[in-house]
């Protein structure tokens, strides 16, 4: 196990809390101190200069332990600001999609961050949420997804034109890693529960029906982990627009896995998992939220399908192997 992975596991596991809500300020402070925040931003820009392999470990752990911080959003914001030659402030940041108006919809952690970065073509703006009218909302995991109206622009710059293509890909990769982590958490809780829950005079883990179901969930977790890690590897190797197929396939596959793992986990947990008091929801509600954020299976499979049609029967295998 790499040092970064070990540290990330420990930091996020320590912050795991079933009851708490809202931004975990203590966790954020630790992320700043340990350099796990702004992980892949170059050191000269105030980051840790980490690799995408490190990013896999950190983002997956954040997903697994349901971290209440905008880790992925800050990573994206820092990358955008740096690409536009702007200074990257410390503290949690978020990102939003430009809709051509003064309204930013469903901004992750909008109420709790110091800045929101909005790319529009090759223009990158940093806006101040404190100056906006904020309408609070959430996703199904109760993570803040707020609407900001009239946020003031505090910095602006121009980035290479590729950021417009890269931004959704980087966002989808980050989300895929979170999904893989949450899927592992749901599986790990289900395995734990099945070995402890006694029915018919024995732990339900001894029932073949339960074993077969959890093996199916295990296979889905494996697929999500393998796809998201391989996509990150591909991005590291060839860069972002080139890794589009890998990232698209990974987000779509993680999205599919999310639904199946959540379904099986709830089935194994029975009624207790369907209650608010039980920790399973920290994983499964995130699986349901994140599979639709930064592009659902539908969006990314359409991109992959279009590439396949373009490749045609003679080029399909070459597309899959990435070797023309």
């Amino acid at each position: 196990m790499s040092e970064v992975r070990e540290m990330a596991e420990q930091v996020f596991a320590d912050a795991w809390d079933v009851e708490a809500t809202g931004l975990d300020a203590d966790l954020w402070k630790t992320l700043e101190q340990t350099g796990l925040a702004r992980l892949t931003l170059p050191e000269e820009a105030g980051g840790s200069g980490g690799t995408f392999a490190d990013w896999v470990a950190v983002a997956t752990a954040a997903g697994q332990y349901a971290a209440r911080v905008p880790l992925v959003e800050t990573e994206l914001a820092a990358w955008l600001l740096h690409a536009a030659g702007l200074e990257v402030p410390t503290g949690p940041l978020s990102v939003a999609v430009d809709e051509g108006s003064d309204t930013l919809h469903r901004v992750p952690w909008g109420r709790a961050v110091g800045g929101v970065v909005v790319p529009a073509g090759d223009r990158v703006s940093l806006v101040d949420p404190a100056s906006a009218q904020v309408t609070e909302g959430t996703n199904v995991a109760e993570e803040p997804r707020d609407t900001l109206v009239g946020a003031r622009v505090v910095a602006e710059g121009t980035a290479p034109s590729t950021v417009a293509v890269e931004f959704p890909l980087r966002a989808a990769l980050g989300r895929s890693l979170l999904l893989a982590g949450a899927a592992r958490a749901a599986l790990a809780m289900s395995v734990r529960y099945a070995t402890e829950r006694v029915q018919f005079g024995r732990p339900i883990a001894k029932l073949q029906a339960i074993q077969q179901s959890l093996a199916l969930a295990g296979a889905e977790v494996a697929a999500a982990e393998a796809a998201s890690a391989a996509a990150a590897g591909e991005a590291q190797r060839v860069g972002f627009p080139e890794a589009a197929l890998a990232v698209a396939a990974a987000k779509a596959r993680c999205g599919e896995a999310a639904g199946e793992v959540a379904r099986i986990s709830h089935q194994v947990h029975g009624a207790i998992g369907f209650t608010r008091e039980h920790s399973l929801r920290l994983a499964t509600t995130r699986l349901w939220a994140w599979r639709d954020e930064d592009g659902s299976e539908s969006r990314w499979n359409r991109l992959v399908g279009a590439r396949a049609v373009e490749a045609g029967p003679g080029g399909l295998w070459a597309l899959l192997t990435g070797t023309p």
Binding site: A223, A226, A227, A230, L245, A246, A248, A249, A250, A252, R253, E297, W300, N301, R302, L303, V304, G305, A306, R307, A308, V309, L316, L319, L320
Partner: peptide, 11 residues
């Protein structure tokens, strides 16, 4: 639908 298959093949 085709993309769904290709994404699975890729994975």
């Amino acid at each position: 639908r085709l993309g769904g298959l290709v994404s699975r093949y890729w994975t």
